[in-house]
Amino acid sequence: MHGDTDARRDGVRAHHRIAERYPTIRWAFKWRDFMISGVPDGITDNFVYEFKTTKNRFLLNYMKPVAFTQADLYAHFFRRPMKRVQIYLRETGEILTWMEYADEENARSTLEKFREHKYIK
């Protein structure tokens, strides 16, 4: 558990030191019978920005789909055509960057999966 806390603290520090700076906003969106709130790491007229950190390239395989899906959801709700995702690899100091069209289908299917599991306890 202690290592988890250290990793989280390192991620927060990296976010403040390394992440690109864009305006952001907290907002809640009604989707079917849900209220979904979100705060992208950045938002411009053309894209949403999501920044994540991970320990190494192996864990990147797990972090990348999460970051892309989160960016796709933000793009969907904030109606932005593009997403910019950056993932900082703490082990090497690399910053990997992707700038691409948001995946509307990924956003929709993620929302539907959430809805399907609503009543599972």
Rank of each mutant, 00 (worst) to 15 (best):
D45Y: 02
H16S: 08
D72F: 04
K113F: 11
R84N: 12
K113C: 09
R17Y: 10
K121G: 12
R57C: 02
T69A: 07
V66F: 10
D72Y: 03
D33K: 06
D45I: 00
H2C: 11
R108V: 10
I43V: 14
N56V: 06
T110D: 00
D72R: 04
E91Y: 09
K83C: 15
A71W: 07
E94W: 07
H15C: 03
R21K: 14
F78E: 04
Q86Y: 02
G11K: 00
R84E: 13
L73F: 06
P65R: 06
R8C: 03
Y101D: 14
K64S: 11
I25F: 08
R13E: 14
T44N: 01
K121A: 09
N61I: 09
P40N: 06
V66H: 11
R108N: 07
W31Y: 07
D103Y: 02
L59D: 09
T110S: 09
N106P: 00
H117L: 06
F47M: 13
F77I: 00
D103L: 01
I43M: 04
Q70V: 11
Y74R: 05
R79Q: 13
D41I: 03
T69L: 04
V48Q: 08
N106W: 05
Y74C: 08
S37V: 08
T24D: 09
R26Y: 15
A107Q: 00
H117E: 09
F29D: 02
D41A: 03
D10K: 15
I87V: 10
E50R: 05
R26M: 12
Y119D: 11
W31G: 04
Y119S: 03
N106L: 05
Q86S: 09
A75S: 12
M99C: 15
I43S: 01
T53N: 02
L89V: 12
G38M: 15
E112F: 11
L59F: 07
G11E: 00
